[in-house]
Design a protein around this nucleic acid. Structure first.
Lengths: 108, 108
DNA sequence: CAGATATTCAACCACATGGTTGAGCAACTT
DNA sequence: AAGTTGCTCAACCATGTGGTTGAATATCTG
């Protein structure tokens, strides 16, 4: 999933899909890329479970997959919280170190 | 940055660093990998701005870089919020569609 | 039926990636 | 000075990636 998100083209596609369902052709259009190329990105997103596809005649209608995206959001939120927390600790440590070197210089 | 996060080894290293500073050797230790290999990962993290390095004699002390990590956290939080929002819309749409096909069947 | 349209598939290419090895360098240790 | 330690660098290799092209498939349209 992290890998699927790591590509800008794919992130843009997700962005487009956030405004409603799109066919593969529509998803491909904004990019200077062959349909086949874009189709591969769509496939990647699908394998990562981030989108679902409904074959409707000759076009393939894509939409975000709620379940997996919720997972993704949860993951991101975890990381965000995790780091924000650590940053506070880090900050405190640096402050403390500064205070010490102010009074005592660097002892190491 | 997304790319730097996409590798499990690097995520694990960040995790380790969240418990305090570590030398390159210490960061490398948990992995079945040569030092040189691990060193490359550290370099990648450094180029992505996620960590900083302080050369202390012959060892290189690494720590999380507060500034950039805050950026990262913000990004993740944005995506998380963004998607959570869209998921609600998606949910509403699906519910609506269901209600319609219940009374009218699929008209397409 | 004969197109045209929407899409995938398979093969290929250039390039990036994660990894190794071997050498090199700087800094401690004795 | 000689050796060991911590680390990087450069070259290399296998594999994966993003992209292309050309053909195949299936559907709609006349």
């Amino acid at each position: 999933m992290f890998h699927a998100l790591a590509d800008p083209t794919r992130r843009a596609m997700l962005h487009a899909l956030s405004n409603g369902e799109r066919t593969v052709g529509e998803l491909a259009e904004p990019f200077a890329m062959t349909l086949a190329g874009a189709s591969k990105h769509v496939k990647t997103l699908e394998s990562a479970g981030l989108i679902r596809r409904e074959v409707k005649g000759r076009q393939h209608l894509c939409r975000l997959d709620a379940a997996r995206l919720a997972d993704a959001a949860e993951w991101l939120s975890f990381y965000e919280r995790f780091w924000t927390e650590r940053l506070n600790v880090l900050d405190a440590l640096l402050r403390e170190e500064d205070a010490q070197s102010d009074t005592q210089g660097d002892r190491r």
